[in-house]
Design a protein around this nucleic acid. Structure first.
Lengths: 240, 240
DNA sequence: CAGTGGTCTAGACCACGGG
DNA sequence: CCGTGGTCTAGACCACTGA
């Protein structure tokens, strides 16, 4: 195990299981062995194993279903849309934007991208530009950078409506599961290029978000800049 | 116990303890009885009690210190500032704004306030208006509504710098502990009155936040509108 | 060194879901 | 019915703190 030898047993078991899931020993949607089997395999009691599983479950890495088994969580549009995409209607109702990619390139990371993604100098990234539409109206512009090393052969069709949420695509095609994101929000006047895409006057107030997404092993895997027209949207969050 | 009889023992114990803390049986900063005493008192095993305490600890209602005891968490400026106030410097550094109240009134709740705070018609609220300053410059304007029924005799000095964070004041003087907040963010053009207070041109892009804060028993206890000038600030959040 | 919370175990029993 | 995860208990032992 990679964990410190001094850490409690349950913490080492948790790390061991996390690493095995990240390595693909059990893929998203698949079942882990039963608790009896796993505890025997790891040489710990079932109670200790259950404590480790409880942590992974709280982090939504696994799902436990009584009477059935324990499963590696699969990325769903549901979760991508309503957990990691916090925009909602002014009245609090859910919105399901459509999405269209209008640029996809492979290029050296900018200084900002390299810093956000903790990449070495001259590393290359895939860079996506897309628009998202709410009720037929362009409401969001996004620019996304992905380390090429983590997303070899990344590809998506340009100009057509995207069927999958990006985070579902990351997991299904590249084995990368986004577990948490950090964001920095500010209100800015729309730059001319963005204003054009959103059909706004330059300088109109829009919400700007700089996001970094982290995977199961807490590696930075995506950097995303979003420009959101909040006339018909609210960005809803909870702090606890 | 008020909880459903069918809920697991540890869940009923958790609710029982939460209610007792909310009722002031143990006040913020005070110690709970030892685990042995509590489990005996509740008629449950120490293991089951520990599970209930674990939930309360995860919610930061209590703090456990090995070798010492278990304590009811006390609101601190630290937590109020860096947990429930997510503004930081552009470079990610912490900021500690000063704060000055410029209006305090007692009035019937507006329709929006009554809805957000789940108040009956014609209920009265304390309404505060304050400014917060970062590096000597007005950066945030806030309007805050508190149900009079929950904050009897609420008072704070007008026009001078406030020494305590508001959430610390709520707990210390009114026994109300804020546990979580929900927020809806949008980018708007500064209304003239706000622009004046922030020394901005009317229509300049600012971040607007509508917040509702909830206490230990998950009652809505504060509604707050914030207008934030994000030229020198970022609003930093994490989703997981 | 006494007393606190933290870890770990073993085992009985319950609740759920599918054959 | 069997096999799964969920609850609850009892007790041994560890780690930390302060007198």
């Amino acid at each position: 195990m990679t964990a410190l030898a001094r850490a409690p047993l349950y913490a080492r078991a948790e790390q061991e299981l996390r690493a095995r899931i990240a390595a693909g020993e059990w893929k998203p949607g698949e079942a882990l062995p039963t608790e009896a089997a796993l505890s025997g395999q790891l040489g710990i009691s079932q109670g200790t194993l259950r404590r480790a599983l409880g942590v992974l479950e709280a982090q939504r890495l696994i799902e436990r279903r009584q009477g059935i088994g324990t499963y590696v969580t699969q990325a769903t549009s549901e979760r991508a849309l309503f957990h990691f995409f916090r925009a909602e209607a002014v009245d609090g109702g859910r919105i399901s934007p459509t999405s269209r990619l209008h640029r996809l390139e492979r290029a050296p990371a900018t200084a900002e991208e390299a810093a956000a993604l903790v990449l070495p100098r001259r590393a290359r990234v895939h860079r996506l530009a897309r628009q998202r539409f709410v009720a037929g109206r362009a409401a969001i512009v996004e620019e996304i950078a992905l380390p090429e090393a983590l997303f070899p052969g990344f590809n998506l069709p340009i100009g057509v409506e995207l069927t999958d949420e990006l985070y579902v695509h990351y997991q299904r095609h590249h084995g990368i599961t986004v577990m948490r994101v950090t964001e920095k929000l500010s209100a800015i006047g729309a730059p001319p290029a963005i204003a054009g895409l959103l059909d706004l006057a330059p300088g109109a107030p829009i919400l700007h978000i700089a996001r970094v997404a982290f995977d199961v092993m807490d590696r930075a895997v995506e950097r995303r800049l979003s420009w959101i027209e909040t006339g018909a949207l609210r960005y809803a969050i909870e702090l606890r």
